[in-house]
């Protein structure tokens, strides 16, 4: 670029020099822009200024601004990535939490079920035990009752036959042993 500027200025120097010789100082009173004798100086200082500015900008200023812009872009990209990572982490944590809650809930349900089952089994067992005991008692009572009834029946036969024999003796005057009256008593009881 510097070479180009220098080339350009050199070309214009030459042109300006030629023109300046040809036209002399005629333009002093005319448009200052056409005062050809000033061209060489203007282009010379333009070239110096422009090259200085070009060097300053391309060596110092542009790298610095570019560096800051890149740093900012990297930083923003980095922050976005960190935010995305944090979000993923939070999502993971949420998922893990949900899973833990679901697991705990399932475990709780299982525990409750288990407890209920155990309690029911225990109560069933104690109830059947109680029922068995009760049934045994009922059976024993019934047995006792049957024994008592049988005993009572035996006594009734003895008493009835004795009474019948006594009545017979008194009525007829004939003696009758109690066991002889038994068949008649049994027949009467069976009726």
């Amino acid at each position: 670029m510097a070479i180009l500027t220098a080339l350009t200025s050199a070309a214009i120097f030459a042109a300006a020099e030629g023109a300046a010789h040809a036209e002399g100082a005629e333009h002093k009173t005319g448009l200052p822009q056409l005062a050809i004798e000033t061209f060489a100086g203007q282009v010379f200082w333009l070239a110096i200024s422009f090259v200085v500015l070009f060097v300053l900008l391309s060596w110092v200023v542009i790298p610095r601004i570019r560096g800051v812009l890149e740093m900012r872009r990297d930083r923003i990209a980095g922050d976005l990535a960190a935010a995305a990572a944090a979000k993923a982490e939070a999502d993971g944590a949420l998922k893990a939490y949900d899973k833990a809650v679901a697991e705990a809930r399932a475990r709780g349900r299982a525990l409750a079920e288990e407890t209920r089952r155990k309690t029911k089994a225990e109560s069933d067992a104690s109830r059947s035990e109680a029922e068995a005991a009760l049934n045994a008692k009922i059976a024993a009572s019934e047995e006792q009752l049957a024994a008592a009834t049988a005993a009572a029946m035996t006594n009734i036969r003895a008493v009835a036959s004795e009474t019948a024999a006594e009545i017979y003796t008194r009525l007829t005057g004939e003696t009758m042993a109690a066991p002889d009256a038994l068949p008649a008593v049994d027949a009467a009881l069976a009726r």
């Binding site: 120097f13 300006a16 020099e17 004798e37 000033t38 060489a40 100086g41 203007q42 010379f44 200082w45 333009l46 200024s49 200085v52 500015l53 300053l56 900008l57 110092v60 200023v61 610095r64 601004i65 800051v68």
Partner: peptide
């Protein structure tokens, strides 16, 4: 050739200085 440092040269130089100050001091 008349290569005098003139008013135009001065303001070119000031423009260079102005750009440089604007861009370097800002950064």
């Amino acid at each position: 050739l008349d290569l005098s440092f003139s008013n135009t040269s001065l303001w070119m130089a000031l423009a260079v200085a102005g750009v440089t100050i604007f861009l370097t001091m800002g950064m």
